[in-house]
């Protein structure tokens, strides 16, 4: 148990460097906040259970002296049982409300402006093809502007894939015959890993792409040139 807590502590310290918990978009931030909230609630549950567990296990052992004692039976206790029905319900309600809110929020795309960048993404075994509105195309690399809403239109040429840039947003499946969209507004320049998250065959593991978030004028330049 002790070892476990030490490890937990260590990792928590480095927690902020875990990609999912260090998001660079507000979408990702919403998701990270939910993760923190649920983690907090779960810690409460874990602590309660662990404490009771440790208490009972140490206290009610068989020893030399009580070997032949037959403990008194108790068939149950209405009050206690109601307690541990109601408290979880309360905790879950606290969790459910933001869950519903944020799930709905993320489903509605923001009011799109003229500037919004639309990118058609075609996933195929085992490549990502990105097509910009002006006909520009890239493979396994996508360049997007900082501070601008980007909408990815996801299509598959063969099997199910899943579009995932851990530091920018959660994943969206890419399903043949159905177009799903994912959108977010990157807030920091940099290069982020993109991955295929749904198992799609031999080289699923290396079906990756790079996401480069650059300043807007740089993006414009890049888009118009070459």
């Amino acid at each position: 148990m002790k070892r476990l807590f030490i490890m937990l502590g260590l990792v928590l310290l480095s927690g902020c460097s875990l990609r999912v918990l260090d998001p660079k978009t507000s979408t990702g931030q919403d998701q990270a906040n939910l993760i923190y909230l649920s983690f907090g609630i779960m810690m409460v549950v874990l602590v309660v259970v662990f404490v009771l567990f440790a208490l009972f296990v140490t206290k009610y052992r068989e020893t030399e002296s009580n070997q032949n004692v037959i403990p008194e039976d108790s068939a149950g206790d209405r009050r206690l049982e109601i307690t541990w029905t109601v408290i979880p319900v309360i905790l879950l309600t606290i969790l459910a409300i933001p869950t519903v809110q944020i799930t709905y929020d993320l489903a509605s795309t923001d009011a799109e402006s003229e500037e919004t960048v639309h990118i058609d993404v075609v996933a195929e075994q085992f490549n990502w093809n990105f097509n910009y509105e002006n006909g520009k195309a890239t493979e396994n690399e996508v360049i997007i502007p900082k501070g601008q809403e980007v909408v990815f239109h996801l299509e598959s040429a063969d099997v199910v894939h899943s579009f995932w840039i851990p530091q920018l947003s959660g994943k969206t499946d890419v399903i043949p015959g159905e177009e799903l969209v994912q959108s977010f507004t990157p807030q920091e320049t940099g290069t982020y890993q993109g991955k295929c998250a749904e198992f799609c065959g031999s080289l699923h593991a290396v079906m990756r792409f790079e996401t480069k978030v650059v300043e807007q004028d740089e993006f414009e330049d890049w888009l118009d040139n070459e």
């Binding site: 939910l34 969790l95 799930t103 993320l106 959660g170 998250a197």
Partner: peptide, 15 residues
């Protein structure tokens, strides 16, 4: 239960 938080599961799923 953490996985059940739909919007957060977009991050956990298949990881």
């Amino acid at each position: 239960v953490m996985l059940a938080v739909a919007a957060a599961d977009y991050q956990y799923h298949d990881s």
